[in-house]
Design a protein around this nucleic acid. Structure first.
Length: 637
DNA sequence: GCCGTTTTCGGCCCGACTGTTTTCAGTCG
């Protein structure tokens, strides 16, 4: 679920900082003839901040909501908003009306926004640090500022320690304690979790709580269930006969560093060195609306509640309540609470088909569901192979034989062994000579597989088409746009995966030209981890995505969705846009050891969030179909 | 600030937990 406070971390790939505000645009920068183009993230950040400042100012809450909604739309827009405005074809963004449209136009044209700058003069932006304290909301910040003149986090801490806060409206020594605890918690707060880290926490918590008396079922909800690319806090949902007892057990877990709240139906803890975990309970057999509610997203839920209201019902986690003539839910004897055991029934009650959790972001899924146009999403079981993996011949850990055996045991029809080319020296990339030596190893392995599979059907658990190790490489796109291997050698691989690790800071035109040269090569079949980002560690490459997607679609070059939870690259928004432009994909593990072959499950999550079906993803095709596709590339370019 | 086959004005989703100004406001999800 997204937080009401967006200031802490509007973009999950950004590290949380005390003050994420863009620098005051008025400062310093000399007037340039062509102001720099703001990225979608930078644009969005301005509007998130306006939302927070407007709320601090005490304006109508709905204004703040409107600014944040617009910021969300900008952040998730697949095209570059500022560029599109400059070029005179602004995209239609949900929640952007005349007023915000004008503000975006000003930002796009000049790189700054007078309204924003005036707002920052009226409401000191350093107050946002105070708003970020857990448990401190806009009213409290305003009171502290007005009554005590505090401006910064340090001011608040000093005031709390000096006992100057008690005595203010509704504030006591306990309030001071809670503020100091909140500041302490903030300094401990860890970065957002990668999916694999979130999964490990979830599994430990489920194991710790299972067996609690009265507990009938327990599962993860929230953004982890939706498989967002990073996870802020964890949500658990329990079906139980003894909710209060379960919450007590939960709050007493040894791994709980701090108990944030513990009532009779819900509880919240902070894990030692880990995220916040919220536990919700529901009565047996009534999980449908609870699952929907606590899976989110908030934006999706708001849409569902609006639809319920249109149909004469009020929707909450508890169920649907009939609305009276005054628009208020009926209570007492004439009240009627409709509950459901499963989510499918909840959606059906609203006249909708089941909406998969990965789509619940209010990015068109409600409209598509109403029209019967939800995609038939790819599933993990659709994968027939993996087109990107390494061995100890370059920077991997396990031998080609072990990697192949592990992939074969997963029931795959193939694994593409794609060790680095020599240009990536740090990865001990392969020279042409070692490529040929490795090819002999691959051939030997395949002879064995062929023998074992024999003339009849393959042994149990193996793919019906049998398994083959395909020989590929991860070809470095060098800084000057050339490749490590010549055309003859490239043509001899089963599959060529190209990627860019070096010269990452070149200007957009140069980087884009390098990527396009790979896409236009008759030998390059897959563009691996196209953005080059490492989540929370390394920013993405500055590329012209629209032209890359157009060229990939035209040449049939497959775009990788890299399943490593550090990469998830392409991401969901880009992959969805690429599909609109006619691209096809692979979902690959980029495994450097056998355990990492399982990375593809996160890749499937990304693909589902990108609305992809199995047909869009070449690694769901048969081995023959994939090989025919890549063999056809030379003819297409 | 946004938005409209119930509206161009008047709405805008809903409930648990906490602390306390003991009937509700603030915060959060």
């Amino acid at each position: 679920m997204t937080s009401k406070k967006n200031l802490a971390n509007p973009d999950p790939s950004e590290e949380a900082t005390a003050n994420p505000a863009v620098q005051p645009l008025a400062d310093g920068a000399p007037p340039a003839s062509e102001p720099p183009l703001l990225s979608n993230d930078e644009l969005a950040r301005v509007f998130y901040e306006i939302g927070d400042l407007v709320e601090l100012k005490g304006e109508l809450v709905f204004k703040a909501v409107a600014y944040r909604r617009a910021a969300d739309a900008i952040a998730h827009c697949p095209v570059e908003v500022a560029r599109a405005y400059r070029e005179g074809h602004p995209p239609k963004l949900a929640g952007v009306g005349a007023a915000i449209d004008k503000k975006i136009a000003e930002l796009a044209a000049t790189g700054r926004l007078g309204f924003h700058e005036r707002l920052r003069e009226e409401v000191p932006p350093s107050l946002l640090e105070i708003l970020a304290i857990p448990g401190v909301g806009p009213r409290t910040v305003k009171e502290l500022h007005d009554a005590l003149g505090v401006l910064t986090l340090d001011d608040v801490e000093a005031a709390a320690r000096a006992g100057r806060i008690r005595g203010l409206k509704g504030m006591t020594p306990r309030t001071e304690e809670r503020i100091l605890e909140g500041i302490e918690a903030m300094s401990r707060r860890i970065r957002r979790l990668l999916l694999g880290e979130a999964e490990a926490h979830v599994e430990r918590l489920l194991a710790a709580l299972n067996g609690t008396p009265g507990l009938r079922s327990l599962q993860a909800a929230g953004s982890f269930r939706r498989r967002r690319e990073t996870i802020g806090d964890l949500d658990l949902l329990a079906e139980t006969d003894d909710p209060a007892g379960l919450v007590r057990t939960f709050a007493a877990l040894p791994e709980a560093e701090r108990v944030i709240a513990a009532g009779t139906a819900k509880g919240s803890i902070e894990l030692r060195g880990g995220p916040q975990v919220d536990l919700m309970t529901f009565p047996p057999g009534e999980g449908g609306t609870y699952m929907v509610h606590f899976t989110g997203s908030k934006e999706h839920n708001v849409r569902l509640r609006g639809m319920a209201r249109d149909r004469g019902w009020s929707l909450s986690e508890k169920g649907f309540l009939r609305l009276g003539p005054d628009g208020e839910p009926l209570t007492g004897p004439q009240g009627e609470l409709r509950t459901f055991a499963g989510e499918g029934e909840v959606y059906a009650f609203l006249g909708l088909p089941f909406v998969p959790p990965e789509l619940r972001e209010d990015r068109g899924e409600i409209e598509a569901a109403l029209e019967g146009g939800l995609p038939d999403l790819i599933e993990p079981a659709d994968l027939q192979g993996d087109a990107h993996a390494h061995s100890d011949w370059s920077d991997g850990v396990h031998t080609p034989a072990r990697m192949a055996e592990a992939a074969r045991a997963r029931g795959y029809a193939y694994l593409v062994l794609s060790d680095h080319s020599f240009g990536l020296g740090i990865a001990r990339g392969l020279t042409p000579e070692r490529v040929l030596a490795q090819r002999a190893v691959v051939a030997e392995l395949n002879e064995r597989f062929e023998r074992e599979e024999g003339a009849g059907s393959p042994p149990d658990g193996l793919h019906p088409d049998g398994f083959r190790l395909l020989h590929g490489c991860e070809l470095e796109i060098r800084s000057d746009g050339t490749f490590d291997f010549d055309d003859d050698l490239l043509a001899s691989f089963d599959v060529v995966v190209a990627s860019l690790h070096q010269g990452r800071r070149q200007p957009r035109e140069q980087l884009t030209a390098r990527v396009l040269s790979a896409i236009r090569s008759p030998h390059v079949d897959i563009l691996a981890h196209p953005s080059g980002r490492l989540i929370g560690e390394r920013p993405e490459l500055d590329l012209d995505w629209e032209s890359i997607f157009a060229e990939a679609a035209g040449t049939g070059t497959l775009l990788e969705i890299n399943g490593s939870d550090h990469r998830l690259d392409l991401d969901d928004v880009r992959a969805r846009r690429a599909r609109e432009l006619g691209c096809r994909f692979t979902i690959d593990s980029d495994a450097h050891r056998v355990e990492e072959l399982d990375n593809v499950r996160w890749g499937v999550s990304v693909a589902r969030r990108a609305w992809l079906s199995a047909a869009d993803v070449a690694t769901t095709w048969s081995r023959g179909e994939l090989l025919a596709w890549v063999a056809g590339k030379a003819a297409r370019v």
